[in-house]
Design a binder for these strands. Structure first.
Length: 783
DNA sequence: CAGTGAGCGAGCTTCCGCTTGACTT
């Protein structure tokens, strides 16, 4: 039995640290938080100064039991959880559960897993910081209050009430997406004309050249642009002035969770959850440092490793020592930046994680490399027939520096109008140029783009909302709650005008471009918009973009002992709870109704609104003698934007496509999407089949094909008993009615030989001994 | 699996942050 027990949060860390500390120390992990607020009654005794009621969750019982045993048999327990607020609280919970005295138990911290850092930590233990623990408790309790008081309000006040939720983080994330969507919907695009002149001539060495110059600003109308081109008729063009300016580019800081998610999204097209899954693998295999971090800091040992790698691979002049600082105030910096553990490993064997690893490797090494040096040349070109001038510019890379390995990408949001500049040929002042042609092209202003998962993470981080460990889960939650969905949008065709001056003649033409196409973007659903409007109206304090920043300031005061945590919570709770009660009492049930007009055929009103099963169109009302008619909106349509014509289109379903093998084929949209009904059976339509336009000759083969696929899946059918033996992705299984039953291992190889008695026996057996429930009792709802 | 759409009101849902496995019918 070791004399010392060290407890850390992550098991991968435990292994590494144990090696460093040697045989006197046993290092174990507690796998994050070991206690949480009880779920009943919110787990908070509000009357009793918000006293929290903590319990050990079922899935943590095992690890707690083990730690208890180890703690009892050891001389000294060292609490080595992360240095941030949550880590301090985990240490305190460990004291409570393991019966350790918080006043005397040794608390150690390190920000990097290196031998000197860990040895230094062991030599300088401190005591638990209760102020910091209390800041965490305040954070936890406030989040529980917000989530568990507002969510039930939604269940009462929304017309669709299946597992709706609200929270300090998720509700604001949805709000961002809803507001962006509305900005886009109300955006009116204005067009301007941009002039570009194409020149040919000879450079100072007599070599033939051609290059492009930009016109003087933008013209608001086609008339203004044309007037300018007219003023250029017959003009001579001379280089008036050449300016050369040096410039430089610097590398980006090493990765944090948020920037890794952004770059993996832009460069590799990964979703944030995919990035985190792969990063976790790399971490567990010892290839990278911890992947949930908000710090851009690199350990001293890492910095010298990187320096060595740069000097050997690229030479001394490519190295530049840099120390990055966090811009983000909310950062808690419990870990290092995300970097390779060993710089000499330039890649990994695993093909899944290779791209992500190489991205991390490049970003890390680039962060300690020299600036790239540029030379920017601007030539002003005089027009003899008017007072305007043209300007041509080019950029030449003088020294590549860090660009040798890595260049950060940007979202289209950050994109400037100017494209990547090429180089400009060497010109001389007073040199005359030949104009090949001059074009004025119509360009349209664009609204801000919809968020991607990664750009939403970026925005949340800027607002200080959420933590590295929650960015990916938050994005999953708001999609799972059906507030937001990720999808593509097709662009629409738009005409634009071009005026061309060539050989002193002006011609006009129209061209077409595709605009507004988006890939993998976050769109709010009608539900998301309605819930957001409701929350904004009744809980504007919590929905404020600055709310988290404000309370974080107060948590900091608690952490520094300037404020008492219950006081802070109480000050928040009084007005908040009044809002809850006021809403419950006074808010109407929300339907999200939007009148569209009157039905030409019946004279009845048409509304778009939210029904129990989603957005729909309703003609007439329930008070009418005749029942109202209903139609479900398509998944790409929205209550806010649907037009009368589009709404009427929806009433064209169900469609009878005609007969196939003597039965009607009827197409409709059901709970699980578009389907065809034929001979009492149902067949899902393929994605590309539009139920409004699809024809019999497309659907009939689908029915035939799916029928054989179903036959192949069937091993045996006992018609009378309604028992089927089927082949599933995990092997054969038995199905009776809607329920599935697992075939015992010893019989699985001969599933085809099972008799009806065998099957019945298995079913009875499974019923008598139901399979163990999954560890987290969180049931998955049918989507 | 493939209806529905109002109201009544069983019995259910829900938060954020810290960590990984379990394991499919």
């Amino acid at each position: 039995m070791a004399k010392n027990l060290v407890i850390v949060e992550s098991p991968a860390k435990a292994k590494t640290i144990e090696k460093i500390l040697g045989k006197d120390f046993e290092v174990r992990s507690c796998f994050g938080h070991i206690r949480d607020l009880e779920k009943d009654d919110m787990g908070i005794d509000i009357e009793n100064n918000f006293k929290p009621k903590y319990v050990i969750p079922e899935d943590k019982e095992k690890v707690v039991k083990e730690l208890k045993k180890l703690a009892k048999d050891t001389d000294e327990v060292w609490l080595a959880t992360d240095e941030d607020r949550e880590g301090e609280a985990i240490s305190w919970h460990l004291c409570e559960v393991l019966n350790l005295d918080p006043k005397t138990t040794k608390r150690i911290v390190f920000h990097e897993i290196t031998k000197p850092a860990i040895e230094n930590a062991v030599q300088h233990p401190r005591k638990l910081d209760m102020d910091r623990v209390n800041a965490q408790q305040a954070r936890r309790i406030l989040d529980r209050i917000v989530g568990f008081e507002i969510s039930p309000v939604l269940w009462r006040k929304m017309s669709m009430r299946n597992s709706l939720s609200a929270g300090r983080v998720q509700s604001v994330a949805v709000r961002l997406i809803v507001e962006r969507e509305r900005e886009i919907n109300t955006f009116t695009s204005v067009s301007t004309f941009k002039v570009e002149a194409y020149f040919t001539g000879k450079d100072i060495n007599g070599k033939s050249i051609s290059f492009k110059a930009d016109g003087p600003g933008k013209f608001k109308t086609a008339e203004d642009a044309e007037k300018f081109l007219e003023q250029c008729v017959g003009a001579a063009y001379t280089v008036k002035d050449i300016q050369v300016k040096p410039g430089k580019k610097s590398p980006a800081a090493p990765f944090t969770t948020s920037t890794l998610q952004q770059e993996a999204s832009r460069k590799l097209g990964y979703s944030v959850s995919k990035t985190m899954l792969l990063a976790q693998k790399l971490y567990e295999s010892g290839n990278i440092t911890y992947m949930r971090t908000d710090s851009v800091n690199l350990s001293d040992t890492a910095i010298s490793e990187i320096e060595k790698a740069i000097k050997t691979s690229f030479g001394d002049k490519y190295h530049q020592h840099r120390k990055f600082k966090n811009k983000n105030e909310s950062a808690q910096e419990a870990h290092e930046a995300i970097r390779p553990t060993y710089m000499e490993n330039t890649t990994v064997d695993d093909s899944d994680t290779r791209k992500l690893y190489e991205l991390i490797w490049k970003r890390t090494i680039a962060s300690q490399m020299a600036d790239a040096e540029l030379e920017k040349t601007t030539a002003k070109i005089d027009i003899s027939t008017n007072h305007e001038e043209l300007s041509a510019s080019g950029e030449v890379l003088k020294f590549d520096g860090f660009l040798k390995v890595y260049m950060e990408s940007h979202d289209d949001e950050d994109e400037t109008e100017e494209e990547q500049e090429g180089s400009l040929p060497p010109l001389a002042v007073k040199q005359s140029l030949d104009l090949k042609e001059m074009k004025a092209t119509e360009r349209f202003s664009r609204p801000a783009p919809r968020y991607t998962e990664a750009s939403l993470v970026k925005k949340l981080e800027e607002l200080g909302i959420g933590r590295p460990s929650t960015y990916a889960p938050t994005i999953t939650t708001i999609q799972k709650r059906n507030y937001v969905e990720k999808r593509d949008k097709e662009g629409i065709k738009r005409d634009f005008r071009i005026l061309t001056l060539k050989a002193d003649k002006i011609t006009k033409q129209t061209d077409a471009e595709n605009t507004g196409a988006e890939k993998s973007k976050l769109f709010p659903t009608d539900l998301g918009m309605i819930v957001t409007d409701f929350l904004n109206q009744y809980f504007n304090n919590v929905m404020d973009y600055g709310f988290t920043a404000k309370i974080e300031g107060e948590f900091d005061e608690i952490a520094s002992g300037k404020k008492v945590w219950n006081t802070m919570i109480s000050e928040f709770y009084s007005p908040f709870h009044k809002d809850v009660e006021n809403t419950l009492e006074n808010a109407e049930r929300v339907k999200g109704e939007r009148p569209l007009g009157t039905d030409a055929a019946s004279g009845k009103p048409i509304v778009a609104r939210m029904g129990r099963y989603g957005p729909m169109i309703q003609i007439g009302s329930v008070e009418d003698e005749e029942k109202p008619r209903f139609a479900k909106l398509k998944s790409t349509q929205s209550i806010e934007t649907i037009t009368m014509d589009e709404a009427m289109e929806l009433f064209k379903l169900p469609r009878n496509l005609g007969q196939f093998e003597d039965s009607d084929v009827i197409v409709n949209i059901g709970r699980f999407g578009p389907y065809a009904q034929h001979d009492k059976k149902f067949y899902s339509l393929k994605k590309e089949m539009d139920p409004y336009t699809v024809e019999l000759d497309e659907v009939a083969p689908l029915i035939a094909e799916k029928r054989t696929a179903k036959d192949e899946r069937t091993i045996k059918i006992f018609e009378k008993e309604k028992i089927q033996i089927l082949k599933g992705p995990y092997g054969p299984y038995i199905k009776q009615g809607l329920k599935n039953y697992k075939i015992p291992k010893e019989k699985i190889d001969n599933a085809a030989d099972l008799t009806v008695e065998d099957a019945k026996a298995i079913i009875e057996d499974v019923k008598a001994n139901p399979p163990k429930k999954k560890a987290p009792p969180r049931k998955k709802k049918a989507e």
